[in-house]
Design a protein around this nucleic acid. Sequence first.
RNA 1: GCCGAGGUGGCGGAACCGGUAGACGCGAAGGUCUCAAAAACCUUUGCCCUUGCGGGCGUGAGGGUUCGAGUCCCUCCCUCGGCACCA
Length: 834
Amino acid sequence: MAKHADRTYDPVAIEREWQARWDRDGTNSFTLDELRTAERPFFNLMMFPYPSAEGLHVGNIYAFAGADVHGRFKRMQGHDVFEPIGFDAFGIHSENFALKAGVHPMDLIPANVANFTRQLRRMGGMFDWAHTVDTTDAEYYKWTQWLFLQLFKHGLAEQKEAPVNWCPSDMTVLANEQVVVGACERCGTPVEQRFIRQWFLKITDYAGRLLDNLPHIDWSETTLKAQRAWIRRSRGARISFPVVTGADGIEEGAEQIAIPVFTTRPDTVFGATYMVLAPEHPMVDTVTTDARRTEVDAYRARTRAMDLVARQKVEKNKTGVFTGGYCMNPATREPVPVWIADYVLMGYGTGAIMAVPGHDERDFDFANTYELPIVRVVAAEGEDADTPLDIAYEYPRGRLVNSGPYDGLSPSEATGAIVDDLATRDLAESRVNYRLHDWCISRQRYWGPPIPIIHCDSCGPVPVPEEDLPVVLPRVEDFRPDDTGISPLARVRDWYEVPCPSCGRDATRETDVSDTFLDSAWYFLRYPSTDFGDRPFDDDITRRWLPVDTYIGGNEHAVLHLLYARFVTMALSDMDRVDFEEPFKQFRAHGLIIREGAKMSKSKGNVIVPDPIIEQYGADTFRLYLMFLGPFMAGGDYQDQGISGPHGFLHRLWESVVPQKGELPEHAIDPKLEQKLHRTIKRVTDQIANLRYNTAIAAMMEYLNAARAGGRTPCRVEVEPLVCLIAPFAPHMAEELWERLGHEGSIFDGANWPQFDADKAVEEEVRVAVQVNGKVRGTVSVPAGADRDAVIALARTEDNVARHLKGMEVRGVIHVPDRLLNFVAAREAVSSTL
RNA sequence: GCCGAGGUGGCGGAACCGGUAGACGCGAAGGUCUCAAAAACCUUUGCCCUUGCGGGCGUGAGGGUUCGAGUCCCUCCCUCGGCACCA
């Protein structure tokens, strides 16, 4: 063939050609019909990128290459692998970049997407370009808005007041990461909290299920751990502390107002010597006495002036003020003072605590600072009711003391008894609490999908009718956040002024846009259904392709993205829109690439730019090297010179299949090499399946080294299987070599993964290490499976072994078949020698 | 502080279930080819002693279990990642 006249390995030319052929032949894309009928569907998902202006960075390529290797491997084993990619292009990153660069995001994003697309093709990913997604495309976010409406209609979306970071100088809302040590990252003005009405999705309704499903999904252990910690279930009780009315003394009467607290330690309620409310707690005004009001208001103002991050710093000393009010401890029936302090958070539990300084470190600190009483109510072994407390005793072990009728009970016994007894007076109930908060999706920003709600004075919040979707984000030239503190969309009067869909009266659109995490919470559902303009996802297609078989991505999304996607899927499942609860059967977190021991960052100037490397070595070499750096799930250290190893390997492989002079020999396989080949097939197959790419590559290198040892020329049947084994890593080269070996069509069509044959992998001769008292003194070659006595006999003839056994009495022999022989020996007693 | 992962040659990293530590690759040294260089190929390469044969030491530190420990147990040190006043 004339086109194969050139025998040198030219990665750039080969890669360009095969990428064009894949496009032309539709090698990697599915038609709608193929999607409908695929017999062994395998959905191979990776986290779609945010298309930055800088282009793909190595971290992206590392993640995508690793996922692509997995997808190509599955495909070669005969699966119909669907491997889509898309662009997560809404959000504050794009918006901020656009602001800085003075470009409109509607112009910026398409350019970035085009550049990303070029780079993604160039790295040789098996992407289905017929099924991509761009979250900023109205054809996509129409369905993001639809999703919001479904959640709204099922009572899973509601408006609540919530604090935001507010920069009083820029007059704008800031995200937590835009706050640097309590100040606005742009102007340095101290940030304060403001309360505004925002939309929340009620993920907390699903907290229990989201937690309880975790043991049943095949995810990286670290990711499961992170989710568990994030949701965090606490079992305990809600206990009511009735407010004591009147200036002094207790008025026990009916109809008293009570303040509920949440506690995990109801057994310590007799030690609750004071109460603390969060400064924002709605009961603060009620309990505060006139005498204390000035001080209380000042403290609340001070708390509000703190940004949300600083508010939760642990290191600072605890502060608080007394409100002047009292509540009755329902167990002791004694009045306890009510304080406010910022160490109590409004967002958790009831926003109020019963403080048990004897048995809680935080309360202990606070009590010491403000000289509040500390009472011991649990005594550990060797302690009694009067043993002084130097520090809080937090363990639920010991016996109750100073607790009236409950004295002597263990903490767990007391927990049940106390809750039951208080329950009879309607003052307690068992309760499970979650750390997980509802998901705030409101963004007072421009670059996102408008939340499809219309506010009407008479009807309240009315959903935009589904047939009116999408609510198109209008092109606004001046999209800067401004001094109103609300979304820039609130300046576009002819956009937001609309009739109420329900009553027809004048109404206004919601001007907040939604969080990007909502865009990405369902994109995997859209991919296989992008052929449909009239529905977000098609039932038949979804049944066939989902849930996702493998999802590979970074652990930085272990919590938010993955949790939101699970929540949305679970909610859709409850609405009977999908027939599964969990979207991702398998999730694997990949590691991170560092460079020569240091984290890559723009500021250090040690970022790897992929394009020049691909130009110099080719995408195949780059992919292979990235996968060779270290275990995929652990990451690796990019050393600039290291790429020459994999590059040389590909050259040698090429040279072995396409000899520079002469023809590829056709003779039979060398028997020794055949054993090694089959052991290599097994190792590579097992290791790729477990994402142990680095050792899979090492095994292939070892095999090729053996096939070429001492300048040997391998024959066709010795190298052909290696072309298949390398294909997931170096797809372009594999295609080219496959064709040069005389095959028609793509190597990825037709289940070409080599078959492992156990019979052909057995070794006839093995080397057995011989030890004397655990130290290796020699090795012997024996037939595989040789028995103990034969190995012992042979081992004794080894000079060095014999020398070490001289004058020794062998007391035992350990034999590990085919591996090791160990003589356990001691110096002979003189009397026993001949 | 809590949780998780980890500490192995000059470097990145291997080592199944406790069984020859250092696979594979980089780097380094020597060699072949070349006018020369690059590339390619071959050999050597954990440290120490020894001309050689061989011997001693060696997987963060210290103990333990075992015929045998990178691997199991205990104590401690360090690095990285996550969570962090969640009652």
